[in-house]
Every structure is written in C-alpha cells, then in structure tokens.
Design a protein around this nucleic acid. Sequence first.
DNA 1: CGTTGACACCTAGTAACACTAGGCATAGGG
DNA 2: CCCTATGCCTAGTGTTACTAGGTGTCAACG
Lengths: 107, 107
Amino acid sequence: MRREALKGHLDLLLLAVVAPGPTHGYAVIEELRRASGYVFDLPEGTIYPALHRLERAGFLASEWSTNEGRRRRVYSLTDRGREALDAQRQEWQAFAGAMQLVLRGAT
Amino acid sequence: MRREALKGHLDLLLLAVVAPGPTHGYAVIEELRRASGYVFDLPEGTIYPALHRLERAGFLASEWSTNEGRRRRVYSLTDRGREALDAQRQEWQAFAGAMQLVLRGAT
DNA sequence: CGTTGACACCTAGTAACACTAGGCATAGGG
DNA sequence: CCCTATGCCTAGTGTTACTAGGTGTCAACG
C-alpha cells in the first residue's frame, strides 16, 4: 500500500470502525487490520493523531477507562459523527465510481 | 469532492488518461472531466506539476507541437509508464476493495 | 479596435495529512 | 530480568494537491 493512498480517506475508515460501538485506539488499529483483510496495517502515529482530529472536529467523543491495570481512551461516534460517516461514505462511492470510469477508458 | 480525496491517486488517473495515445496537458484536464462523468474537474495548477513529476519519474515523455499557432506539450506513456499504470491499477483495486470491506462492517 | 473568453502553458507558496521515530507505562511469560 | 504485547502520546518530515498569480495566441463581439 503506497504511502499516500490513504490521504483523505482515513477519517472515513476510522468513523466506520468506531460506528458499531465504543472502541479504544489500539483496538481501532486491530479492527482496521482485520476488517480490511490485512490490507490496512496502520502505525499508531497515524491512528492516534487522526482520532484526536476527529474528536476536535466533534465526530468522536472519548473517555478514559481502565481494563486490567491498563488505561484506555474509548471513542464513540457522536451524532455529528454519524452524519459525517454517511456523507463521507457517499463521497467515497462517488469518488470510487469516477475512478473506475476513468480506469475503464484506459487501454 | 473533498480536497484530499485525490491524494496519491492522481498519478494513476493521469497515466490512465494518457494511455490511449499522445495527449497534451489541457486535453488531459478536459478528458479527465469527461471520462469521470464530470466528477474530476481539476485545476491547471494540479495537472501541470503532476505531469512534470510523472515525466521526471520516467513514466511520461513529452515533446512540443504547434497547432493553429498554439504551442502544446504532448505527453506519451513510456514503457515504464505502462508498467506503473498496471501496478497502480492493481494497487487501486486492492485499496478500493479493502475500503469496501471496512465500510461494509459499519452500522 | 479594444475587450472578452477559450485555449494553452507555467510556478512559487501554502495547507493538510500520513507517517517516522522516538518516548512512557503496565502486564505476563520465558 | 528482559522481551513482547498492550496502550497511549507527539514533534518533526516529506509528499502532495491546490491557490493565485503570471505569460501568450486566437476568434468573436461590440
């Protein structure tokens, strides 16, 4: 996976992963890896800042929890986050569709 | 179309547009607009530097031509460009497939 | 004949973003 | 006791698409 491929689509992925229910950062990484069929194996330095950005944007809310002596920051999708998920999903479909159209024309 | 959506996929689009035959920059913009169903309407400041980058990378070759008093730089796909097109097309398919997998999991 | 618009090219600077490379801390197994 | 996995964080870097300008030709319109 090339470095720049994700640019602009990471937010959608994170919203989609958190959507089913509250998830902490480390689990987001693992779930993203699993759900993508091991295509997306993203480093922490990518995920954590992105989660912070989404929280600042009001799409995620977080709270600390503790599990077996380990502290976790658990993220949930806000209402605005769900709207953003829906909107960005549609944008993705439009984008991917247009990409396919152009690629189909290439010899 | 959000600003960042294209990041990392523009090169593939340009290679795909030039693939059918020699094309000049301005025509690339128009063809990209047409072929994408008017989803990709990219400014010159995006296309020209990208074409230069692809030429520097050895994926495109260019030469000047003149048509009705107007000079054009006409780009053609090199052998390495065709390899890159094939490789990036496969990468795109993998990427898009993984995106769909993750999105399918979201509630 | 001056202006407007389409055609056709160019580039310096900017903002955004994923990633690198570090750091800190706890728990459990060898 | 060290190593791995779990779990979080951030300053700095490199790439990239885009903004905002610039140059020049040609045809059409008033």
